[in-house]
Simulated assay, not measured.
Amino acid sequence: MTAEAPELLTYRGVVYPWHCDQMGHMNVMWYTGKFDEATWTLFAELGLTRSYLVQNGRGMAAVEQTTRYLRELVAGDTVSITTRLVEVREKVLRFEHAMVRTSDGLIAATSAITGVHLDTALRKACAFPDEVRRRAEAMLGSTGETDNRC
């Protein structure tokens, strides 16, 4: 990949008072939850919708996640998350989220995630279908061979 993949807006929301801990800042569980919602928006863009997963006996599992907390968020802050695909392999996606405080445009947190496509009956990783792979490669701006063996 010669150029960075474009960013996709995957989440918009607000920090509510009940998201905050005893110190008045958004608790880490809520960062994770908002990143999770952004992840499912990315997956839907790729065709990995709930109906696809259920109808095909497939799932997605995060096998690695690294979150960096850069700025504190408080009740009333609005946030957006942009996501960029970093890598697409036969059975694996790597992507990065950036959570931005919309009032000043500063990044509050980032999360880098590696996800694996699963056959839920066999309980093992399997290749993405051609259409998902094509969408992911288009998002990256690349092309490649696809192998659909589980």
Rank of each mutant, 00 (worst) to 15 (best):
D147N: 10
R101G: 00
G141L: 07
A112K: 09
D130S: 13
E7P: 00
A121P: 01
V86P: 02
P17D: 11
E7R: 14
H117L: 06
R89F: 01
N148V: 15
A3K: 14
L85Y: 07
A109Y: 03
M99A: 06
G57D: 11
A136I: 08
L9H: 06
A109N: 04
L140P: 00
L48N: 04
F128Q: 03
T10L: 02
A136F: 03
E145G: 01
T146F: 03
G24N: 04
V74G: 06
R135Y: 05
L122A: 14
E7M: 08
S103F: 06
N148Y: 06
G33K: 15
A138Y: 12
G76H: 10
S80Q: 15
T78K: 14
A61N: 12
M23W: 12
G33E: 13
I113W: 06
L48F: 01
V132R: 05
I113A: 02
V63H: 04
C20I: 08
R135E: 02
Y31Q: 04
R68E: 06
M29L: 12
Y52M: 05
D104P: 01
I113K: 11
E37M: 04
D21Y: 00
P129K: 10
G59Q: 08
R68L: 03
V54S: 13
T120I: 15
D77H: 07
L42H: 07
R50P: 01
R135G: 00
L122N: 01
C20P: 06
E7I: 04
R94P: 02
L8S: 08
Q22L: 14
G141M: 05
V132Q: 05
V15G: 02
V54T: 15
R89M: 01
G115N: 13
M23V: 14
V74D: 12
E72I: 07
R135N: 05
S111L: 06
L8G: 05
A62L: 05
I113L: 07
R135L: 09
T32M: 12
E45T: 13
E87M: 07
F95Y: 08
F95V: 07
T83Y: 05
K124N: 11
T39G: 08
L106H: 13
G47L: 07
V54N: 09
M1W: 13
F128V: 01
E45R: 15
F95R: 05
V63R: 11
F128W: 09
S111W: 05
M139Y: 02
T41A: 12
R89W: 00
M60E: 08
L9W: 09
A136T: 08
T32S: 13
R71L: 14
T2I: 14
E72N: 10
R89E: 13
D104T: 09
M60R: 04
V92Q: 11
M26P: 03
A62M: 04
V88F: 07
R101V: 01
V14F: 00
K124A: 10
T67M: 14
D119I: 07
L42T: 10
L106T: 10
Y52D: 04
K34H: 13
A136W: 03
E64T: 10
N27V: 01
N56T: 14
E72Q: 14
L122G: 04
D21F: 00
R84P: 07
L53C: 08
R135T: 05
G13N: 10
T2F: 08
M1D: 09
Y16M: 07
T10S: 03
R58I: 02
E96A: 08
D130H: 15
V88L: 13
F128H: 06
C20E: 08
V79I: 14
M1E: 14
V86F: 00
